[in-house]
Design a protein around this nucleic acid. Structure first.
Lengths: 344, 344
DNA sequence: TTGTAGGCGTTATCAG
DNA sequence: CTGATAACGCCTACAA
């Protein structure tokens, strides 16, 4: 924070206005003066104070990113996508994670006032999404993975329900009729959408769906393990299971093995998310893939559009496709032991 | 950026100074006035413009984080650690990734002037570390995973060489004498340190180390696969291989299988990093674990210390321990097929 | 206990 | 082409 524009001006024998003009190419300056100023600036290692600049131009060149967490498989990929798009625009990223309750979220949001030009928000909790309302009212923002139909906000989501439907349809095509599901964390909007897709596909096929085949999970490996155990204890146990994410599916795989049964012969298992580990478990896990980084990239894209458009910008809604990745665990292909070395 | 302190003052019938005093608890204000101001501020949803605040106090309450990438297994964990420590202090994180060459780095750094109180830097490239010099000269900074002995900067690193030594000693204890290594990306300082540890341990044990047993990798799965193939083609092939990271080790596992050989019976394999997948491959991969998030956490800790100390702060140097995790791939325990469900 | 006014570092407007 | 100078929004002596 030491060398200021004033020092550069004094050293170069000009006014601060001229220095500013040269460094921002914002006005006519003689070649000679210009060169001299550049030299001095370089020698003094001058770099403008961005806080001051933000104050006068009321443009920070920074995007605020609010996520439930800023690390881990999923969020990390989202950030990657955001970063890619954002850096192309020369923007910075102010990130913030771990905001469980709305109050903490609001605090984080208000702490970003004056330091960001726009916001990228994501809350997995459906309730929080509703209370969003006018949280971010003075800068444009885009909701990532918002399930609820937001009226006033742009949303970029993934096709959770569509992915779940694809899984169930695939299992039906393989001849299964007793298809169970292990649901995600309660209150989580992704989980709710995936459950909806599961139900819709069964209903469309006129397959009955007894309540006992919907067992509650929590997105963790242990939760999936426990849930699968409950399913296997059923007198008329399911022949196929759709876990709402891969971690639970992997836990389920373990439970099946411990019960002395074989996947997919005795019970088929399919997950959701297609995390890297999915390819490596035994048997390789069938799953649903969504381009997570694209979620972030597109959200950033929409935000920049909003930034450009200004006031008269109409909310957009994008839904990213979900693709079924068939591997050994659902019985459609022969199970292959060990880590597949095949390219992704 | 709409409602300012001035509007709150007008609405509450006081001066801006009084509002500031109340909101920052920075001076005596009557209970009655205080309450009224708080009410107005809440009603107007006033939040101070942080850019302006940063300007007057020359404190941004923000830490700049410069990493080679801001996503992926490793960096994600680093950020997690940083975030944990940082949020406790009420600080924000301005992150920036993908800075390959020093020039781009310098640009990113100067763009952070006036918006951060301190910096957390990490460049895997050894050369870049050297040219660091006085890049960040006006705010305190801490180097993450800096291998070079930095004179003027605080460093938080992990014990790469120690981990590599532990691997080799373990393999020696198991009776191996032809121990190969697949090295990491050239120019990468972690890779260099791991290679150094490998050599040191062999030298200390007076085991000869022919050049053919050091084959170049690049930290990718394909690179490991290729390198292992080269090793298996040797007339006198190694009985054990230390890969400088887990991705390469997993690639190596595939190459061994394709050659019709068995891990660990024909050749033992050990990796480095202990990524989550390590537990799931067949056989489970022995590896070296370092608390990556601790790397970030500690770096943030040291930075806050420097911030507090001000000018008279002496550079620190921390080295995080590396722990050998023995699983099936090195032959010390029986290989267990399939995904282990055991807790991490 | 409260108000006035100067300053933080830049940009932008308006005269020269 | 160049130089004063008024914002930008807030904090903080200094006065009252």
């Amino acid at each position: 924070m030491r060398v200021t524009i004033r020092q550069v001006a004094r050293e170069a024998g000009v006014s601060v206005a001229t220095v500013s003009r040269v460094l921002n190419a914002s006005g006519p300056v003689s070649a000679e003066t210009s060169r001299r100023i550049r030299d001095v600036a370089a020698r003094l290692r001058y770099a403008p104070n961005e806080a001051a600049r933000a104050l006068t131009r009321s443009r920070t060149h920074t995007i605020g990113v609010l996520l439930p967490d800023i690390y881990g498989e999923f969020f990390s990929e989202v950030i990657r996508g955001i970063d890619q798009r954002t850096r192309r625009e020369g923007y910075h990223l102010l990130v913030s994670g771990s905001h469980d309750d709305p109050a903490e979220m609001e605090a984080a949001l208000s702490a970003m006032r004056g330091r960001v030009d726009g916001l990228l928000l994501m809350f997995p909790d459906a309730a929080a999404q509703a209370s969003l309302g006018d949280l971010a009212h003075d800068v444009p923002f885009v909701l990532i993975n918002g399930a609820a139909r937001q009226e006033r906000a742009s949303v970029v989501a993934m096709d959770n329900a569509g992915g779940a439907r694809a899984v169930v349809r695939h299992l039906l095509a393989l001849g299964h009729t007793r298809i169970a599901t292990i649901t995600g964390a309660p209150g989580n909007s992704d989980a709710a959408e995936r459950l909806r897709g599961y139900r819709e596909a069964l209903r469309a096929a006129r397959v009955e769906r007894p309540a006992e085949l919907e067992v509650a999970g929590d997105f963790t490996e242990d939760g999936g393990h426990l849930a699968m155990r409950r399913l296997l204890e059923l007198s008329d146990r399911p022949t196929a299971v759709f876990a709402a994410n891969d971690s639970m599916a992997i836990g389920a795989l373990g439970a099946v093995r411990e019960a002395g049964l074989v996947v997919p012969d005795d019970v088929a298992v399919v997950g959701f998310d297609d995390i890297p580990i999915a390819r490596y478990v035994t048997p390789p896990l069938s799953s649903i893939r969504v381009a997570i980084d694209e979620l972030g990239r597109l959200a950033a894209e929409r935000l920049f559009e909003a930034l450009e458009a200004g006031e008269d910008h109409r909310p957009t809604r994008d839904v990213l496709p979900a693709q079924l990745i068939v591997r050994g665990s659902c019985g459609a292909t022969l199970p292959r032991a060990g880590p597949a070395h095949a390219p992704p």
